[in-house]
């Protein structure tokens, strides 16, 4: 662990990313305490520019809602969607990839065809169709994002498992009579974990982008204040109140940037091949 942190710390960008993410996380946690009122409450006259009134440092939107409060509550939604949809995508992708890689043959063929099939459908368009069917709520937005983002996980895991399954320790476990399931869970997957973790951190970033795009198109949950929603709602007043689109955009960029930087840091710290390169 210490060694891991040491290697991670070598990447300055990764440390910056961690700091930014910690701040976003702090906003998300503090939101209900700092802004106990709903971010939807109409508190002042509409279109108050930033820095013109005490207590409303970022001004108000088209309905007189506190932009700063929206930003804080939006952090909760972005992080939640990013994390949960990634977990769901991993839950779909890891088993498929592991089974395909471990058993090979027909199973591999079928599962990879299935994966390939999903990769051929334009993912954003598929997400839109899925939300048209389900009609957007937070749970379905998460599900739609997960459904379009699991194939890379499956491919990655398959590749890792494929390269691991003929290693000595796996063969030894087979000889000692462990069941296939036990071998996959106890021997193979733990060793395939590092690249999965790296991929997952990047997937959280992508999921946040995807959620904001969907909300921007009006396909988000209308009952949660999200950054993408804020931009989409401010779009019609872009010319008269540009800051309403600008501010939440910056929040998305920072958060996604932070996650990408962290992903790189994790990659440096976990991926042995690259580690060799560093030396």
């Amino acid at each position: 662990m210490k060694a891991f942190w040491f290697r991670y710390r070598q990447n300055r960008g990764a440390v910056i990313g961690l700091v930014i993410l910690a701040l976003v996380l702090l906003c998300a946690v503090a939101a209900p305490f700092l802004f106990p009122r709903s971010p939807w409450s109409m508190v002042q006259r509409p279109f108050l520019p930033p820095f013109t009134m005490d207590g409303l440092p970022l001004g108000t939107d088209a309905l007189g809602r506190d932009v700063l409060s929206g930003l804080f509550h939006g952090a909760r939604v972005s992080l939640l969607v990013g994390l949960v949809s990634t977990v769901v995508a991993l839950a779909i992708g890891i088993p498929i990839g592991a089974l395909a890689g471990y058993y090979g043959g027909l199973a591999d063929d079928m599962l990879m065809r299935f994966t390939e099939f999903f990769q051929t459908i334009p993912s954003f368009a598929l997400a839109i169709v899925l939300l048209a069917i389900f009609q957007p709520s937070l749970a379905y937005v998460i599900l739609a994002i997960a459904i379009v983002s699991w194939p890379p996980v499956a491919r990655l895991v398959r590749g890792e498992v494929l390269s691991l399954r003929h290693r000595e320790f796996v063969e030894a476990a087979t000889l000692s009579g462990q069941s296939n399931l036990a071998i996959i869970l106890k021997q193979v997957l733990p060793n395939a974990l590092p690249p999965i973790i790296v991929l997952a951190s990047l997937m959280v970033a992508t999921a946040i982008l995807l959620e904001s795009s969907l909300s921007f198109l009006g396909l988000g949950d209308p009952n949660v204040m999200s950054w993408g929603y804020m931009i989409g709602a401010a779009r019609t007043v872009l010319r008269t109140a540009w800051w309403l689109s600008f501010i939440p955009g910056i929040a998305i960029v920072l958060t996604v940037l932070a996650l990408n930087l962290i992903g790189e840091g994790l990659n440096d710290a976990l991926n042995p091949r690259l580690r060799r390169r560093q030396s």
């Binding site: 709903s38 939807w40 409450s41 109409m42 309905l63 009609q135 957007p136 709520s137 009006g218 396909l219 988000g220 949950d221 209308p222 009952n223």
Partner: peptide, 18 residues
């Protein structure tokens, strides 16, 4: 959205269906 807040002000809970 404004209607949902109007209703909340008098104590009626509501949510928007997208």
């Amino acid at each position: 959205e404004a209607t949902r807040q109007n209703l909340a002000e008098v104590g009626i809970n509501s949510e928007l269906v997208a």
